[in-house]
């Protein structure tokens, strides 16, 4: 028997929880159909998380994509179908590439990351487009392109160093009407690996407190720069990412296991630490950088 998992009309880091709530009670070998037929929009986080869901199932999951041509076409241009066909059993119409000049909103198509060379490729790809978008359109300072690429590199390395599996990264820009009314650039990095708690548990000689759980592991990694490695230079990547996101008045959110931690800017009303969420393997990172507006 196949269980249908309904993807909401708008799929982002918040509404993904509805999908994970449906999956939570099911054993990993339960056959599921991820039904996105009525989905009209998905953030890069939503798209990469869908691939991660497929990765997390012991029984190959089925997938039905958006019925709206515009949405399906956008997902195709974002690189979703190329990877979805490898991890899902596809149902219904699968849009094909049309050989156009590329999607201007997509700074980086969904790209698999498993090894260090993949991080080099991601950084090489982003540099060409990032300058135009970040400086000319989002009005960030000229050095933002370097800092952005450094940020992207560090969050991708999180997969290589800690996930022990393939993850996905995507970068897109769009107008964030819901909260800001401004353009944003969004980095999403999702993997279905071991997650922060298990990664930190693997540190030799680490003493775990009574309250040790996914939330505390995220606090340790994000707020205290703790790493599973004892080397003093470790843990700097995420600390650097935090600094840059703060500098840009951006938002950093990391979900791992059953918890989610966020560095929240003034324009957002999210909760800093959410616990008791539906379990989901690995780590899912979202960085949102808003367009800079002149203070006046």
């Amino acid at each position: 028997m196949t269980t249908v998992i309904t993807v909401p009309p708008s799929l982002d880091d918040q509404t993904l929880e509805q999908v994970l709530d449906q999956l939570a009670p099911l054993p990993a070998d339960q056959k599921v159909l991820v039904d996105a037929r009525h989905t009209r929009w998905a953030s890069p986080y939503g798209l990469t998380a869908l691939l991660t869901i497929a990765q997390s199932r012991a029984e190959r999951a089925s997938f039905a994509g958006p019925e709206t041509e515009e949405t399906a076409s956008y997902w195709q241009r974002a690189g979703f179908y190329e990877h979805a066909e490898r991890v899902f059993e596809m149902h219904g119409h699968v849009p094909r590439p049309r050989g156009h000049a590329g999607e201007s909103q997509v700074l980086l198509e969904i790209t698999p990351v498993a090894k260090s060379d993949d991080v080099h490729d991601v950084v090489e790809k982003i540099q060409a487009k990032a300058q135009t978008i970040l400086v000319n359109e989002l009005h960030l300072d000229p050095m933002a392109t370097m800092r952005f690429a450094m940020t992207l590199s560090e969050v991708c390395q999180n997969i290589v160093e800690h996930a022990q599996t393939t993850g996905w990264v995507a970068v897109q820009t769009y107008r964030y009407r819901q909260r800001l009314g401004r353009r944003v650039v969004v980095i999403a990095v999702c993997d279905g690996g071991i997650g922060f708690r298990r990664s930190l548990e693997s540190a030799q000689g680490r003493k775990l407190s009574d309250r040790w759980d996914d939330g505390m592991a995220l606090e340790d990694a994000m707020l205290r720069g703790v790493s599973r490695f004892r080397d003093p230079g470790r843990g700097q990547g995420l600390a650097g990412v935090r600094r840059y996101v703060g500098k840009w008045d951006g938002k950093l959110a990391i979900r791992s296991g059953t918890a989610r931690i966020a560095l929240i800017p003034s324009w957002d009303e999210d909760i800093a630490l959410r616990e008791g969420l539906a379990p989901f393997p690995g780590s899912q990172v979202q960085i949102t950088i808003p367009e800079r507006v002149a203070k006046g």
């Binding site: 950084v123 540099q127 370097m146 690429a149 450094m150 590199s153 560090e154 390395q157 003093p232 230079g233 470790r234 700097q236 990547g237 600390a239 650097g240």
Partner: peptide, 15 residues
């Protein structure tokens, strides 16, 4: 060098 990230700064300069 076109880009130097935190990890490489640590591996090269720090270490």
């Amino acid at each position: 060098v076109t880009l130097l990230d935190f990890s490489c700064a640590d591996e090269i300069v720090g270490k």
